[in-house]
Amino acid sequence: MITLTIDGKKTQVVGGATVLEAARKLGVYIPTLCQHPKLTPFGGCRLCIVEVKGVPRPLASCTTPAAEGMEVTTSTPQLEGLRKTVLELILSDHPDDCMTCEKAGNCTLQELAYSYGMRENRFRGERRTYAKRDANPFIERDLEKCILCGRCVKVCKEVQGVSAIDFAYRGFQAKISTPFEHDLNCEFCGQCVSVCPTGALTGKGWAKKGRQVEVNEVDTVCGYCGVGCNLTLNVKGNEIARVTSREDTWNEGWLCVKGRFGYKFVNSPDRLTTPLIKKDGKFVEAGWDEALQYATDRLMEIKGKYGPDAIGGLSSARCTNEENYLFQKIIRAGFGTNNVDHCARL
């Protein structure tokens, strides 16, 4: 264990921990943009600079390993001045369109601009402009809002193992790009969207579906494969506005394309909305009572005619435990047969 002092408070961290991690452990707030707890440190935004006794220049706390006996100060007039300069520089190359931005209200950059009271900007100048021209149906990339924090690049490489994007070009023209500027073509897991601290990366289906303050967040479990990732359905009205996942669950907030972007079947117009009974080869709408009574009557009739083992029940790996339990109970105890199975083998 390493003992260090942050803002006069002593704390202990394991070897290899960064100064930022030590500060977070103490509950000391240091502003960050590029840092993400699930990704390797980047050190690009420079907001998390701190003063370390004996070191002449400020150090980025996200990349500086905690060292024994280190004395760290996280906030001084000089540090705050430097942070303000850095923030002002970022904002000098960022569109002022929070009023229409999808991310407003849930944007780290916006929050920082607010808390540092950024109104005037001493550094107004050229702004990068890019045409949006991705053909993919999942991820919206608005590079003008990109602050080059590199989180998307890191998550794509470190978590997803895909490296579909990386930094390209130099200087002020540096940007996050696909190889040779092709359209984004990747696994579309949207991990990048989930870690983007600004409105640069959003879901294509999210537009105008609801800002974060308007949605109701419902934690549930993904309905696709057996991995069972934690999902948060962000619901506005009776519609899913978008799907996210909490970082503090076992799947660490990571999802796949189906889990993150494959939710629109829920509100599909193809959904069955009323019971149907086939009459003369055609489905006719029926009331619940009628349909249920008809179904049970027929099943009991066939059971009476051929015996219980002429009845079969196919349950579902898509349904809940409770539904499966009740289904097999009905087949076994209600119809008197063990002919119950589901598609575990398929």
């Binding site: 494969c225 069972g228 579902s316 349904c319 499966n324 289904f327 199975d341 598609c343």
Partner: peptide, 22 residues
């Protein structure tokens, strides 16, 4: 063994199998 569907494990656990109860 990685299960293919969201609740294959649960369907088996809950007895949706011809030879076993929950």
């Amino acid at each position: 063994p990685l299960r293919g569907q969201n609740n294959v494990q649960g369907a088996c656990d809950s007895g949706a199998l011809p030879n076993v109860y929950p």
